[in-house]
C-alpha cells in the first residue's frame, strides 16, 4: 500500500519498521493523506485527523502502534 502511494512498486523491500518515511522516502502531505485513507479502508478503522500527531506517522512501527491503539479503543 505504501509502495503504491509512493509510486515505488517493488522498491520498498528495505523499509525497516523504524525507517523515517518523510526523510528517507519523501512522503509528502498528499501521499500521507492518501495512505491514511487507504488504511481506513483496508483495516476498517476510523482515524481522527485532528488528533493525529506527526510522531505517529514517521515510521511504520509508530503508525502500526497508533492504529492498534484505535482498534483496541473501539472494542
Amino acid at each position: 500500500m505504501l509502495a503504491d502511494v509512493l509510486q515505488k512498486e517493488g522498491e520498498l523491500d528495505d523499509v525497516g519498521p523504524d525507517t523515517d518515511l518523510v526523510e528517507e522516502y519523501g512522503l509528502d502531505s498528499l501521499q500521507t493523506i492518501s495512505f491514511l485513507l487507504r488504511i481506513e479502508d483496508t483495516f476498517d478503522v476510523e482515524l481522527d485527523y485532528d488528533s493525529l500527531q506527526l510522531s505517529d506517522l514517521r515510521s511504520i512501527r509508530r503508525f502500526a502502534e497508533h492504529v492498534a491503539g484505535l482498534s483496541t479503543a473501539e472494542r
Binding site: S29, L30, I33, S34, R38, E40, D41, E46, L47
Partner: peptide
C-alpha cells in the same frame, strides 16, 4: 497544487472522506 485534491480509489476511501 499538492493540497486540496484527493483521488478516491475505492468505496472504502470514499466512505472515509464522506465521514470526515
Amino acid at each position: 497544487s499538492g493540497r486540496g485534491a484527493l483521488e478516491l480509489t475505492t468505496p472504502g476511501v470514499l466512505a472515509a472522506v464522506r465521514r470526515a
